[in-house]
Nucleic acid binder design. Structure first.
Lengths: 156, 156
DNA sequence: CCTAAGACCTGTAGTAACTATAGGTTCAAG
DNA sequence: CTTGAACCTATAGTTACTACAGGTCTTAGG
């Protein structure tokens, strides 16, 4: 029972998705976004088949996303990888920019955490909303900080 | 030039937006989302006018957003504030939940920062992409185990 | 051989929180 | 009385998917 091309291993979209650890719809979505190539449908019937290189590419996309890159940025990175004149320094620079963005986000979130912390701490914890210091501070204008209460220990 | 109703102080949408420190389109957007009331157009011509309470509400929304609340959550908060049986503890609980979410986000971003840091550090800084350790790490296998995904494309 | 299940296909609509048009009306000044 | 600004409604775009609807294709069972 010989089969040319190893027929039982035909990588249809569902298998490709499993190999790249994404959903089928995600693959189709990347195709629509032109991040990956769309395998043509075989001329004489059958489903589209995904070459290993395409699955690799999807994995690349997911890895880059985990580092905070957007699909647009990842598209750039992928074009870069196809460019023989591209230099490593270019990639590193993009990573540095991303790092800066991540650091900014962290700072903003830490400020939010601090504000929430103070509000939660200052809140009496029961009673009508008219007396709720959290609601009050939201009603109050812009750059207002929460009312202070005795000491609050700091979080590491 | 006397005018009934203090004509020069009519708060049209642009003035309301300025007072709440948002764009005109944002006000209209909140109206569509039913977060604020839509002042009716005067029966006999003229523009819609925004009462102070509505502008307050917009400010409330912006303040709550700064703490990381989504518009959906803010809608709940606003309903709560209209409910005489609502308790301060309820608001505080929502703040606590939000604080938890913010902390999770911070942790995830710190992990990303760490990963980027290491990649940048390990990168040779020049040379072809074939030798770029950042690209390599993106190409390389992620935390991948083939078939971790459910066979069927439905997730709970 | 026929049927039914399941995987595939295309295309569209929904999510969050706006922003930005297009195309029309109304108002205030010159 | 004519600009020009501000208003009005309605729609499309953004991000990264997800979830259908409604059809086609393949394959396993009877």
């Amino acid at each position: 029972m010989r089969m040319e091309e190893g027929a039982m291993h035909r990588t249809t979209i569902a298998k490709a998705a499993r190999q790249a650890d994404v959903g089928v719809e995600t693959i189709r979505f990347y195709e629509r976004k032109a991040l990956i190539e769309r395998p043509p449908r075989p001329a004489f019937g059958g489903y589209r088949e995904y070459p290993a290189a395409t699955i690799e590419r999807v994995r690349f996309i997911r890895q880059a996303q985990k580092l905070g890159f957007s699909l647009g940025e990842i598209g750039d990175l992928l074009s870069l990888s196809a460019d023989p004149s591209a230099d490593c320094a270019d990639v590193r620079e993009r990573a540095r920019v991303k790092l800066g963005e991540v650091e900014d986000k962290i700072s903003r979130l830490i400020e939010i955490r601090h504000a929430l912390d103070e509000l939660i701490d200052a809140c009496p914890g029961s009673g009508a909303l008219g007396a709720c210091s959290i609601m009050e501070s939201l009603m109050g204008q812009g750059t207002q900080s929460a009312g202070t209460r005795p000491g609050k220990e700091k979080r590491p």
